[in-house]
């Protein structure tokens, strides 16, 4: 039963990875930007929530409602001010800018909050669980995160396929110049895509913060999880990202069941195996 438990916990964890990876996948799909600051943004969201809670005493859910839209606005501004400029200078420039952002964010956090590890206190909600069978219990937090991930991914999929803005987003992703010719403002649309990406990162960051401890330097290792989920699942498909996240989550969880030291290694090895034998990912999707 331990193995079944490991798989179930892994699936739940995979939901969190998928939620976290959505933004990375979206930004790459639409703008061809690999955001190397992705992990650090999640950590910034966790610290921001921490500061808000300790500063204002507001309950966590209000902080969540404030942080996510705030990040969306930040995302829009980052795209318009910083990333748009780098897009015209070639792919190396975007990589350098996001890497620079990652270094800046990490060290600013380090200076403000010190290197101590912290957690977000989610109260009884974060620690409580219900029993499925005698030996398997599922945490409320993990289940909520998983459902949230599914809702967000379905929402993004619906947004892309059903709404006018989503259609323009897909058009800009396929061919920016032509989309501009027929009236799409690609800069605004890229801003929207980044806003969505940042909002999901903030959400994932808060869930991460409640689930496990964090410190200013943890961003890069989290970025690797997101990246692995995206590549394992297959680029540019929301369902691929969900599948990739779950494969990664289950692998890590089962690896940890064998030997706790194997947790990360197992995930990386599955990633490398996918890379070697199925580089297009498990679900080869179209872009976006």
């Amino acid at each position: 039963m331990n193995w079944l438990n490991a798989v179930i916990q892994g699936l739940m964890l995979g939901g969190l990875y998928a939620l976290f990876a959505t933004g990375l996948s979206l930004m790459f799909g639409v703008m061809r930007i690999v955001n190397l600051g992705h992990g650090d943004l999640a950590v910034v969201a966790s610290f921001l929530a921490l500061a808000l809670i300790s500063g204002t005493g507001l309950p966590l859910w209000i902080v969540l409602v404030v942080t996510v839209p705030l990040f969306a606005v930040l995302g829009y501004l980052t795209q318009r001010v910083l990333l748009q400029r780098s897009l015209s200078s070639g792919p190396l420039a975007t990589l350098l800018v996001t890497f620079g952002l990652s270094i800046v964010l990490q060290n600013v956090l380090l200076e403000i909050f010190s290197a101590d590890t912290r957690t977000l206190d989610g109260g009884s909600f974060a620690t409580g669980s219900f029993e499925l069978t005698g030996s398997i219990s599922v945490g409320y937090l993990s289940l909520t995160t998983f459902l949230l991930a599914v809702v967000v991914l379905v929402g993004i999929q619906m947004f892309l396929s059903r709404t006018g803005l989503g259609r323009m987003l897909r058009a800009s992703s396929d061919d920016r110049e032509t989309a501009n010719l027929v009236g799409a403002d690609s800069r605004h649309i890229y801003g929207i895509a980044t806003a969505i990406a940042f909002a999901t990162v903030a959400l994932a960051g808060l869930m991460f913060g409640m689930r496990s401890s964090f410190d200013p330097s943890i961003g890069p290792s989290r970025l690797i999880f997101a990246f692995e989920a995206v590549v394992i699942g297959g680029l540019g498909s929301p369902w691929g990202t969900l599948l990739g996240g779950m494969v990664l989550g289950v692998t890590q969880s089962v690896g940890a069941q064998i030997d706790p030291a194997l947790t990360l290694l197992a995930g990386h090895l599955v990633f490398l195996a996918v890379l070697a034998f199925r580089p297009q990912g498990l679900i080869a999707g179209r872009t976006v």
């Binding site: 910083l82 400029r85 780098s86 200078s89 190396l92 420039a93 350098l96 800018v97 890497f99 620079g100 952002l101 990652s102 270094i103 800046v104 060290n107």
Partner: peptide, 11 residues
């Protein structure tokens, strides 16, 4: 500072 200078140089 290094990160900021790096971003500026890249742009």
């Amino acid at each position: 500072l290094l990160g900021a200078v790096g971003i500026a140089a890249a742009l």
